[in-house]
Design a protein around this nucleic acid. Structure first.
Length: 315
RNA sequence: GCAGGGGUGGUCGAGUGGUUAAUGGCACCGGGCUGUAAACCCGGCGGGUUCACACCCUACGUAGGUUCGAAUCCUACCCCCUGCA
């Protein structure tokens, strides 16, 4: 019943490349619904610097997995992948086409290559390890891992603390090395075989200009006030939500650690670096079809539609 | 005009006679990524030839000089900053 004629479309690419706009246009033409694939847009309440498409600009296209997680929670890729599968099924049941739109390559990969089964994050354990890291440095944590799980320790650079800490957590929680478990991936959802991954690749210098301009607009639109309010509401400064681009630097500004100007400049830089990493990610992701240009360009929409109407390229 | 300080690679900034194409930071480029991923980490980074060991060229304001050897010492000139006029 589900053939390649019923594709699941993913629109990916660097930030500010016009994915959202393109996604809506493609959805209109394919009778689709959009599933957000961006690790920041999932959060409620943070608004200005997230580049979420406002409701009135969605042209009636339903958007899922957007604006639905409290900023108090630290959402994860595995959760997203699970919920995305559910949404894909729901949308297809309605006879519509699911469109995954967003720049978080890691989320998309979590969907295509599900993670090995592991216990939920133990917040207390994570906090304990984090405290150790803050007091004694990431290398110290790496040495701990070396003792408990030498194989795992070899796999990660000592300073790569998120991965080192996770490996340590897994070793402690399951009694086994993370490395020994990594190949136990569950089979991906059937729909991932019908994925058409379309990636935008605008000229790098123009993309960087877009990013710079967009960042200035965000600050002019009251980003600083937004952060003040969020902090006042009790959203922790260390939350994933406030770690997002823009928010993070404004928090530093409010703490007096940098000037407003430096917060703006650093945000621009953060985002430019991010865009580059996204490009790297998708360049090496399997089965990606590239389109030069921004998603807002009519020509790009044209070639995207043309390519979607044609059968998928054999890989 | 006088006195003092300074001009180093895209940028900031070390280096004060000899493994110096020149520490380091940033930018930039490339790469990684298995429940924090808008996070975190790794590598390259004057130019040219080479698969590679390697080799050649050009570089520390400009022009000369001293020296076996200079970004580092000397002379002149140009420019910048500070103080006094």
């Amino acid at each position: 019943m589900n053939s390649p004629q019923n594709p699941v479309v993913a629109i990916v690419g660097p930030t500010a490349s016009g994915k959202s706009t393109l996604g809506i246009e493609v959805a209109l033409q394919l009778n689709g619904e959009i599933i957000n694939c961006d690790s920041v847009q999932v959060y409620q309440e943070i608004q200005i610097a997230t580049a979420k498409v406002p409701l009135e600009e969605r042209k009636g296209i339903p958007h899922h997995l957007i604006d639905f997680v409290s900023p108090l929670i630290n959402y994860t890729a595995a959760e997203w992948a699970r919920e995305a599968v559910t949404k894909i099924e729901e949308i297809e049941t309605r006879g519509r086409v699911p469109l995954l739109v967003g720049g978080t390559g890691f989320y998309l990969r979590a969907l295509r290559q599900p993670f090995f089964a592991s216990p939920d994050t133990d917040a207390a354990l994570r906090q304990r390890i984090t405290t150790i890291r803050e007091r004694r440095g990431p290398e110290y944590v790496h040495r701990l891992l070396q003792r408990l799980d030498p194989t795992g320790a070899k796999r990660f650079f000592p300073r790569d603390w998120p991965r080192v800490q996770r490996a340590l957590e897994v070793r402690i929680q399951t009694g086994r090395s993370i490395v020994a478990q990594m190949d136990d991936r569950p089979a991906p959802h059937e729909s991932t075989r019908r994925l058409r991954i379309l990636a935008l690749n605008p000229p790098r210098d123009e993309l960087y200009q877009h990013i710079n301009r967009r960042t200035e607009v965000h600050f002019e639109s009251g980003l600083v006030d937004e952060v003040c309010n969020l902090l006042a509401q009790g959203v922790p400064a260390e939350s994933s939500a406030l770690g997002a681009h823009g928010y993070r630097r404004v928090v530093e500004f409010l703490r007096g650690e940098r000037s407003l100007e430096s917060a703006i400049d650093q945000t621009k830089l953060d985002i430019r670096h991010y865009a580059k990493r996204q490009l790297t990610w998708f360049r090496h992701e399997n089965g990606v079809e590239w389109f030069a240009g921004f998603g807002e360009e009519m020509g790009v929409l044209g070639s995207v539609m043309e390519s979607l109407m044609a059968p998928a390229q054999p890989k």
